[in-house]
Write a protein that binds this DNA or RNA. Structure first.
Length: 554
DNA sequence: ACACCCTTCAGAGTAGAACT
DNA sequence: AGTTCTACTCTGAAGGGTGT
């Protein structure tokens, strides 16, 4: 079957996917391109393509009567679908306008525009770049891509590919690492069907738990995973960990992952970082805590709730606190300034959380040991940080190695390693989970004991739920403060200024400035354009936060 | 701290229309 | 013919997100 007949029949199948990707190989490397292609090929179809359209709906701008949204209010109406319904009921033609997605060879930000009227032929021409550039708004077509495809092909690559091309191939660090790598990459995971089966559930889950930008991001990510679910790891330059390049199950949030592959069992080294350092830095408090089977997160949470109020003791608050502690500990280990960590704790929780954290004997001991360690090596700098992270990541892999060994020596494939998560694994048991799981746990625990690391493998309960975006201590600036545990601390910084398109009609201020060109040895004129709308928006935002600041300076 | 990916922004350069 | 203005292309950097 050819693409043309498939289009005629308006059918969707895996074979059609293959047909399209065979003819337009670029689509493989740029899934949104393919999704948009399919969306346009099947404008009225149901089922799978309707799902696709739903995923991208919020990103497709409507442009009727040859005009695009002129201001934010219009854009919001477009996005809400209200405008679309109005047009439909009036029986007006609807064209799609997308920005930046149809040119897989350019950078993601290239404002390539396509206005499609006759869908199939326009798509074909657009994909093959047969259309000559047409500028101006009046024409019926359609594609402005600057230089022809053939000229551009050699010079530009899709960002992912370009990065891959310039990236240095790094060999595995050790035979052990090489063996793990081979095992991870040669495991058949049969993800294609599983991810497809659960795609609808994932869409529902994401729509139910996220909103706004994050929802779109997650939905698109989910679509990518369904498109090409396989996972391949590779060694990287500055760490013993192995990463996968594209978006995959390994890089999506754990709650979404659990919806995607509900059958996988996740195992995790308990307090991996802390236990490795307990051995390497000889931390007595930490060792005592870990060997007694206690959890630092629980201790900190209990202490905090005891000091604040027992009424706060709900599962949600406990979950949130756990996340906050988990973010704070690596910061301490990797040499972040205590003031910054304290500020983060105050921001995400409150002063009591900071006090409880720093007063805990394990944290205090860790802090002292950290300062000693970095002090011996000439202070906290990029070099020493790298050294530390390499040391830790090597030990992590060593600790998990028995799982790889067991998998390799297994006679019948009862289970396989779904994901390698640096300090844990996701395992899919096809059968005999009851007998295999304890054996795996025992092997790893025995290995940890032999290495002198006071940790153990624990099975992560699948009940963990989404509890808001992760705390990050890096981006906090002085002066930010929180009250209690905020339900939502996300603060959009740029608002909607970014929606303006290159040829919009919003007023601009042009600032001309002179610069000295050292190559040409002469003064040149440089211009800088600022959108008035952007400035106004920024000023409004600033006025909300700090009323005194606006008006003093131009 | 280390990775990964994606989007936006500002600047530099360029083509062509409009103007002098 | 030269100048100015505008829209457009392309790039690297920055900053957003994620994982451990």
């Amino acid at each position: 079957m050819t693409i043309e007949t498939a289009i005629k029949r308006r059918t969707w199948s895996q074979s059609f996917y293959t047909l399209v990707t065979d003819r337009y190989p670029a689509a493989k490397h740029h899934p949104p391109y393919l999704r948009a292609l399919l969306d346009l090929l099947f404008p009225n179809s149901e089922g799978e393509c309707a799902q696709v359209r739903e995923v991208y709906r919020e990103r497709i701008f409507l442009w009727a009567h040859g005009r695009r949204p002129r201001n934010i209010a219009e854009l919001d109406r477009f996005n809400s679908g209200e405008f679309l319904n109005e047009l439909r009921s009036a029986g007006l033609p609807i064209n799609y306008f997308t920005r930046g997605w149809f040119d897989p060879l350019s950078c993601s930000s290239a404002p390539t525009k396509i206005i499609l009227e006759k869908m199939p032929s326009a798509i074909r021409r657009a994909a093959l770049r047969e259309v000559k550039p047409v500028t101006g708004m009046e024409g019926r077509v359609y594609v402005t891509t600057g230089k022809p495809y053939t000229e551009r092909r050699d010079r530009y690559l899709y960002t992912g590919e370009r990065k891959a091309a310039t990236q240095v191939e790094v060999p595995a660090r050790s035979p052990l690492a090489q063996e793990c790598l081979d095992t991870f990459n040669s495991t058949p995971r049969r993800l294609f069907l599983v991810t497809r089966e659960n795609h609808q559930a994932v869409i529902d889950y994401i729509t139910g738990t996220r909103d706004g930008d994050e929802r779109i991001r997650r939905l698109v990510e989910a679509q990518r995973i369904v498109d090409s679910p396989e996972i391949f790891y590779r060694p990287v330059e500055n760490s013993a960990r192995m990463y996968c390049r594209k978006s995959s199950l390994a890089s999506c949030p754990s709650d979404v992952r659990r919806t995607f592959v509900p059958d996988w069992t996740e195992v995790d080294l308990k307090h991996a970082h802390l236990s490795i350092l307990a051995r390497d830095w000889n931390l007595k408090e930490a060792r005592a805590l870990l060997e007694s089977g206690g959890s630092l997160w629980d201790e900190l949470t209990n202490e905090y709730l005891y000091k604040v109020s027992a009424e706060w003791d709900t599962p949600e608050v406990r979950d949130r606190l756990r996340q906050i502690w988990k973010a704070a500990l690596p910061s301490i280990i990797y040499g972040q300034h205590t003031v910054d960590v304290a500020r983060g704790l105050v921001y995400y929780a409150d002063h009591m959380a900071a006090a409880v954290f720093f007063q805990h004997p394990v944290v205090a001991e860790l802090l002292a040991a950290r300062d000693d360690w970095f002090g011996e090596r000439g202070g906290i700098n990029a070099q020493t940080k790298l050294e530390l992270s390499e040391k830790i990541s090597e030990t992590e892999l060593e600790l998990l190695y028995p799982i790889v060994q067991m998998f390799r020596d297994m006679k019948r494939p009862d289970w396989h390693i779904g994901l390698y998560q640096y300090d844990g694994c996701s395992i899919h048991f096809a059968r005999r989970k009851e007998s295999w799981l304890p054996r795996i746990v025992n092997a790893v625990n025995e290995n940890a004991r032999r290495l002198g690391v006071p940790t153990s493998l624990e099975v992560v309960p699948l009940t963990t739920e989404y509890s808001g975006p992760k705390p990050s201590f890096k981006k906090l600036r002085p002066g930010q403060s929180g009250k209690g545990i905020p339900a939502d601390f996300r603060r959009p910084l740029h608002g909607f200024a970014s929606y303006t398109t290159p040829c919009d009609r919003t007023p601009k201020i042009t600032v001309t400035k002179w610069r000295y060109d050292h190559k040409e040895n002469k003064w040149c004129r440089g211009t800088r354009k600022i959108r008035l709308a952007t400035i106004q928006h920024d000023l409004e935002e600033l006025a909300k936060v700090n009323p005194g600041a606006v008006g003093k300076d131009e």
